[in-house]
Each structure stands twice: as structure tokens, then as C-alpha cells.
């Protein structure tokens, strides 16, 4: 399966990176990581590109990491459609102080606009 993982640097996106890589090692999924700019995250996109490359390489996978510019949600959806990915994977939301799950703005946009299946990692 051709999987597009979108990460913007929030903690849940890094969890999704690790889960997706682990799963790809088992299943042979072809993983592409799209790094986007998440205004809610303090991590710089350049650093995320390095983290993603390293994680993929360490797992023995090809390090296909792209830095997307423009609106994060729509650039992920566009790439998924133009290169015919089977699935988009995103972080499954962060927890509020009292433990409620809150989806990020990027995940909300992608869920509503993508034409391929979207997986949220918890």
C-alpha cells in the first residue's frame, strides 16, 4: 500500500511517524512523509525533515521525505491525489488538560476534504 504520512511537529504527529514506520517494516507499505508547517507546533519543519529521514533510514526504509509549502491540509490532500496514494496517515489528536481528545486543524481539514481513506493514529 502507498501511504502518505503528514507530520507538522505536534506530539501526536511524531507518534504517528513511529507507528507508521513500525507498520511499514512489517507490511512492506511504501511510506512517503510530507512535512508541513503546523502553526500550533514549535518544531521547525527543517528539523522534522531530519527526524523523519533518520527514522525511516534507521528502520531500513527508503527515506522519501517531502517538505510541503502552502496550506498544510490542502497540500497533503493535493499530493495524495496527484500521486495516487492509497491512504493518508495523521496524528490522532492531542489531549486537553483534563484528557479530552482534540483533533488538530490539519486533521479536520484532511478528514473532510480527502478522497482517499484517512487513518488517525492513537
Amino acid at each position: 500500500m502507498k501511504v502518505l504520512l503528514g507530520i507538522g511537529g505536534a506530539d501526536d504527529s511524531l507518534d504517528a511517524l513511529h507507528e507508521t514506520v513500525e507498520r511499514a517494516v512489517e507490511t512492506g507499505d511504501e511510506v512517503t512523509v510530507a512535512v508541513v508547517e503546523n502553526p500550533d507546533s514549535d518544531r521547525a519543519p527543517e528539523d522534522l525533515v531530519d527526524v523523519a529521514r533518520e527514522t525511516l533510514t534507521d528502520a531500513g526504509l527508503e527515506a522519501d521525505v517531502r517538505r510541503l509549502s502552502g496550506d498544510p491540509g490542502s497540500s497533503i490532500v493535493e499530493l495524495a491525489e496527484s500521486e495516487e496514494f492509497d491512504q493518508i496517515v495523521l496524528g490522532g489528536g492531542q489531549r486537553s488538560p483534563m484528557g479530552k481528545i482534540r483533533l488538530g486543524n490539519i486533521a479536520e481539514f484532511v478528514l473532510l476534504n480527502a478522497r482517499v481513506s484517512v487513518k488517525l493514529v492513537r
Binding site: R95, S96, M98, G99, K100, I101, R102
Partner: peptide, 19 residues
């Protein structure tokens, strides 16, 4: 609502302890 309260006594205890 939004995943709380969790289901199952162990998870409930963990959630309340954190709260």
C-alpha cells in the same frame, strides 16, 4: 465525550489519578 471518561476500571483509575 471526546474520549472521556475512558472505558474500563483500570483506565478510569489512571485518568482520575492524572486529573
Amino acid at each position: 465525550a471526546q474520549g472521556v471518561p475512558p472505558v474500563g476500571e483500570d483506565r478510569i483509575r489512571e485518568w482520575l489519578a492524572n486529573l
